[in-house]
Design a protein around this nucleic acid. Structure first.
Length: 576
RNA sequence: GCACCGGUAGCUCAGCUGGAUAGAGCGCUGCCCUCCGAAGGCAGAGGUCGUGAGUUCGAAUCUCGCCCGGUGCACCA
């Protein structure tokens, strides 16, 4: 792909006076048939050459000889269209895929650089709701994408495990008559129920809020019994989280929750004071951000306790010191953009010259139907949101039904059904741009038709199935397999369309990293799946004279599609 | 009121670092398995790209105003 662009640049640059880099950067891929394979738009030349773009294109088309790898140059509508030698193109693309193996699509953009990425980060004592899937999978996918771009990625789960909320849990735990003896059998479900009980009970008994604050104060002062309760609650939460993350195939390098920063808060306050940023306001301590068009950042409450942003300041300072990151990403929903604007501004005011390396990566909200029929943000606390484990189970069960009908040989395989369910749910989260709000509806969440995860997974399955029939599914392909390949076999439109897409993979890996959005890769996987299904439909592979060549393409397509699926976190399964 | 985000086919959405004739899926009308997996393929109908201006040779894409929807804006995280 890059060699083809470079070859175009090598003939266009001298004829136009542009640099080769400038030519390469404007080369586009045409959208319609008859427009060649690469295009150079002549419009920007109109001014300097004082000629109409169409005339420039016609003139260039006459004067230029097709560069290596090309057979024809044509002028059309002010574009200079280059037609590749199809055999040559297929040869270059497929050879590159075979030579690189799983490293195809890798680049060195991030070599030697570290990215700290904070995602998922649920609250202790609460079950994962369906809406947590979005941030979790966006963060997971971005981690993999940046890794493929050469970065070292540190995945951080910034567990919400400190604050008055945990006073609430302790209060309700004790009020329910539970004690240390009950800890071994405690479940996350039970803890989550205690939360809801607290909300209900505190409406009747407003004094409960005070009790919770006192309980948290006692926890903060390291009361031994309260520390044991807290540690158990945390372990129960982590146990269930790890179970779900395993199903989703999501991993973290660190579970560093807010509690970890508890004893660093004083030094944050000292730092703010030393820079003369802290002001007293209505009995609380704030950093005034009015000059920047923002409300003040509330650092310390009237009762002396600290807040979210105080802990986030401590976390940012720690991460910078501990990881020395190039970028620090916060994958958190769009509703918190003000918080992050304030956080980054305070870091700037503190004189942290790296504040610009911190970046909020917002995503749209998951809305649920409200009582009046409108749509609103779902809240775990009130129990309106569906639990992630329930949605996963429902999806798996529905898929088991479909499998029984479509592939009785595999019927009953919970493992495969689960992987299809994960693929379906994850793909529908990531195929759209991350800032779009999503409306949760059961019917839609459990719809597996059309442009869906299963459709893309099925393309991979069909490729695997063909390879399996020849015993080549576990083969390690090498450049030796390219000897004697008749590249002209790939010049039919279905094969060529597939080859063309495979060639675009490295660019898509970069695009996704620059937009900080898995969406381009999900869309790409979809178009590869389209091309695969069409290829399999149009081109018989086994038992035909072209078998050897087509098996090579099948393997190349499987390899690239599998890689793209891995990047977005959709399981690349081999049968379904 | 201020701020962030969205507004493209009946519905759900791609396309947005400006480029040629705006693309999918669902739904609707039909067609294709004696053939490697039909969870598949092919064809048809369906569009003032919210709206008004501006920048430009060229705007769904950039800038500004307005309208509609979601979210946030001091002691929760």
């Amino acid at each position: 792909m890059t060699t083809f662009k470079r070859n175009i640049a090598s003939v266009v640059a001298p004829a136009t006076g542009l640099t080769e880099e400038a030519v390469e950067s404007v080369i586009t891929l045409p959208q319609h048939e008859g427009q060649g394979d690469f295009s150079f738009p002549c419009f920007p030349l109109a001014k300097t050459l004082r000629q109409a773009p169409a005339a420039i294109a016609i003139d260039l088309a006459k004067r230029l000889q097709p560069p290596p790898g090309f057979v024809k140059i044509e002028a059309l509508n002010g574009y200079l269209n280059f037609f590749v030698d199809k055999s040559d193109f297929a040869s270059q693309v497929i050879s590159e895929i075979i030579q690189n193996g799983p490293a195809y699509g890798n680049n060195a953009q991030g070599t030697g650089k570290i990215i700290a990425i904070d995602f998922s980060s649920p609250n202790m004592g609460k079950e994962l709701a369906f809406h947590h899937l979005r941030g979790t999978m966006i963060g997971n996918s971005l981690s993999r994408i940046y890794h493929k771009n050469g970065y070292k990625v540190e995945r951080i789960n910034h567990l919400g495990d400190w604050g008055t909320s945990y006073g609430k849990l302790i209060v309700m735990f004790l009020r329910a008559g539970l004690g240390e003896a009950d800890l071994p059998t405690l479940t996350l479900e039970r803890l989550n129920a205690l939360y809801r009980d607290f909300d209900a009970a505190s409406k009747q008994n407003p004094g409960l809020e005070d009790e919770a604050r006192q309980a948290f104060a006692k926890l903060e002062s390291n009361d031994a019994f309260y520390r044991i309760l807290w540690a158990s609650f945390r372990e129960v939460t982590l146990h269930e989280l790890r179970r779900l993350y395993a199903i989703l195939n999501v991993e973290f390098d660190a579970y560093v929750g807010e509690a970890f920063f508890a004893d660093r808060l004083e030094s944050v306050l000292e730092l703010l004071k030393s820079k003369n940023l802290l002001r007293e306001s209505q009995g609380a301590e704030v950093v005034d951000l009015e000059a920047f068009g923002m409300p003040p950042a509330l650092i310390r409450k009237t009762d002396g306790s600290t807040l979210y942003i105080t802990r986030d300041l401590a976390a940012a300072l720690y991460r910078r010191e501990h990881y020395g990151f190039e970028h620090c990403f916060y994958v958190v929903d769009n509703g918190q953009s003000l918080h992050f604007q304030q956080l980054f501004k305070v870091l700037e005011l503190l004189g942290m010259d790296w504040h610009g390396r911190c970046e909020h990566i917002p995503f749209g909200l998951v809305l649920i139907k409200s009582e009046d029929g409108g749509w609103e943000k779902g809240k775990t606390r009130t129990g309106q949101s569906s639990l992630l484990k329930d949605v996963l189970e429902a999806a798996r069960d529905k898929i088991l039904g479909i499998m029984a009908e479509k592939n009785p040989d595999l019927a009953g395989s919970h493992e495969i059904a689960t992987r299809i369910a994960v693929g379906a749910l994850v793909f529908s989260e990531l195929k759209n741009r991350r800032l779009n709000d999503i409306r949760f509806e059961w019917d839609q969440a459990l719809s597996f038709e059309g442009d869906s995860g299963p459709y893309v997974q099925n393309a991979h399955v069909r490729l695997c199935s063909i390879l399996r029939k020849t015993g080549l599914d576990r083969k390690a392909w090498t450049v030796a397999d390219l000897n004697g390949i008749r590249w002209e076999i790939f010049t039919d439109s279905s094969s060529l369309a597939l080859v063309d897409l495979l060639a675009q993979y490295p660019d898509k890996v970069v695009t996704a990293s620059l937009s900080r959005d898995p969406c381009p890769l999900a869309q790409y996987a979809l178009s590869v799946a389209d091309a695969v299904h069409r290829f399999i439909h149009d081109c018989r592979v086994l038992g035909v004279p072209e078998e050897r060549e087509r098996l090579l393409l099948v393997h190349a397509a499987k390899s690239v599609l599998g890689s793209a699926l891995e990047l977005i976190g959709v399981p690349a399964i081999e049968s379904m």
